[in-house]
Design a binder for these strands. Structure first.
Lengths: 334, 334
DNA sequence: CTGTTAGCGCATTCAT
DNA sequence: ATGAATGCGCTAACAG
């Protein structure tokens, strides 16, 4: 059996109350006794049990982090940032994946809640779903809204708009868009922002013809490759000269498809991604993308979940266009 | 205040003992009463407190997972697999990053231990260090050994050997190797395996000249790019025709460097990585690599940490050569 | 089969 | 300033 506060008290010849007070740094204890107790603690290698303490205080130092998939670089980065901040504050992070499956999400939320985390950071799978279950635990959602809970997110519609604007300003008039799953609000926002960008452009340049074609899949590499192939295999002349994607992973999959088809980037095809994952600046050519301020997202999320922010219901962060080499002026019309 | 077992007992008109027995499925309770109690539990939305239960049983259902960096795709995949298996067994995963820093590792281990996890999965930063601290909690290390604890790992030396063998059998006689940090056993094993491969080849083909140059850095993309540039900028004729790396991330960084220098892969340069992360098959050209059987690693690790495996001290798994497009026959000597 | 009770490790209140 | 006692929510041992 591990050594308890009682053992320490006995060895130090004091009561458990005194030991407890020594542990709580702020309490007032005679210096001689404090030293004695600290000595015994050191000597015995005593480690207060979080079980007893948490039960007594009815509070844990756990933060639940529930995301679709930790192998997604965006969520990995989020997890890393959250964990760094949390551990610096004395909290530990409980990690769970939902695999974008509402049923799994439901089970994972229940499992989390049974651990009585101090707070929950949730990237909800689909809209609605859990909702009621989360009552009683302060929950902050990231990236995707959930009725009745605080949300920290980049302005996805704005990001989509910026992507369209960037491509159009480079002279592209035949655009493709690879969307994420329509079931997610984030996909819908990015896509509708993209469409708004085109609409706005048409309005300002009345009479200007802008073609666009939208396909939809998941956020992963494979979807980017598959859907990219679909877009790129249109009849020559109708093939898009620029494609925006809802994630960098899709964009990298798309680059893969372009390479396989002998389509050069950016000479024949401009590509712009979304997220700015670390890999974006390492692929060839380096990926132009819409950056999410992820460190900022993590910081606000954690502050919110720890209850340190005014109970504002939504934080909407500005995305940033990162120009690299995968986007260029449209090729001359032949 | 949340609702407790006492409330349930009161509403159901039974004792807490009975409610507890209903909760413990295996115990024997009168059917009518059981139904009644279950009804009340449902109605009140009662959720047993893991705090009380854990304190009583002196046991948690937490598995600590301590890795260098969750944004490293290899560890992300490991985390995902471990989490999937753990949650299926009713365990939750505590995640922490060490950032490859011994001091941070020490602190993180202490933080984990203070949560009293049932077991600990650790990818130790450098050799030694923690050691004593982990006493009392069943700990399994992955990838890198730690004195006195079980280890689950791929046969890194064998993998390094396979990489050398693959390149040599393609006719390459001027090899480069991008190593991970010497402070880690895994780096040393892969590198010495690679060297053994060359030595062995020389022995079998007596008189054959094989040049090799080894550089060392971290496991990440950036190191691959930087060190790759170093290797590739040797005087023409002395430049390696094939380079093996200690990680896929390095290999992808290296591809980036090659592209910047106008060196074609695999025509001018063959590349072989290590790990087989998902991205490996998506880069252009698709990356030849030494695969780690990561699902298997995760499975064995979790079984071991749950104490279901005979207390074998070491599990050494076979790596697998995955041939893709980044490696090819050596260019003819000019 | 069910009720009662002790006690897991700790923080805190009440005396002193 | 310190000791003694209480109870957080729960399980298990003991009675009945």
């Amino acid at each position: 059996m591990a050594i308890t506060i009682k053992d320490v008290a006995q060895h130090a010849g004091v009561s458990v109350g005194t030991v407890s007070r020594v542990l709580a740094k702020n309490s007032t204890v005679n210096d001689a006794i404090r030293l004695k107790v600290e000595g015994v603690i050191e000597q015995l290698g005593y480690r207060p049990s979080s079980l007893g303490r948490n039960l007594r205080l009815n509070r844990t130092y756990l933060i639940g982090l529930l995301i679709p998939d930790i192998t997604n670089p965006f969520f990995a980065e989020l997890a890393k940032q959250v964990e760094m901040l949390a551990s610096a504050e004395g909290y530990s992070v409980l990690l769970a994946n939902t695999h974008d499956d509402p049923k799994a999400e439901q089970m994972q939320v229940e499992a989390m809640l049974s651990r009585l985390p101090f707070g929950l950071i949730l990237v909800p799978v689909s809209d609605s779903a859990v909702n009621t279950i989360v009552a009683g635990t302060r929950t902050v959602t990231v990236d995707r809204p959930l009725q009745g809970h605080a949300l920290v997110s980049v302005d996805n519609a704005r990001g989509g708009y910026m992507a369209a604007d960037h491509l159009l300003s480079l002279g592209h008039r035949n655009l493709g868009y690879i969307s994420g799953p329509s079931s997610t609000e984030v996909s819908r926002a990015r896509r509708s922002g993209f469409i708004s960008g085109i609409t706005e452009f048409r309005r300002q340049h009345s009479g200007m013809v802008v073609e666009s074609r939208i396909v939809e899949g998941n956020f992963d590499y494979l979807s980017g490759e598959t859907l990219g192939r679909t877009l790129l295999q249109s009849a020559p002349g109708t093939r898009p000269t620029a494609i925006a994607t809802a994630s960098d992973q899709q964009a990298i999959g798309l680059m893969r498809a372009a390479a396989d088809l002998g389509i050069r980037v950016p000479e024949d095809l401009s590509i712009i991604g979304f997220d700015d994952i670390p890999l974006a600046s390492l692929v060839f050519p380096r990926l132009t993308t819409i950056r999410q301020p992820i460190a900022e997202i993590a910081r606000i999320t954690l502050e919110a979940v720890l209850g340190r922010l005014s109970p504002q219901k939504e934080w909407m962060l500005e995305p940033v266009l990162i120009r690299r080499s995968s986007s260029a002026f449209a090729p001359p019309v032949t």
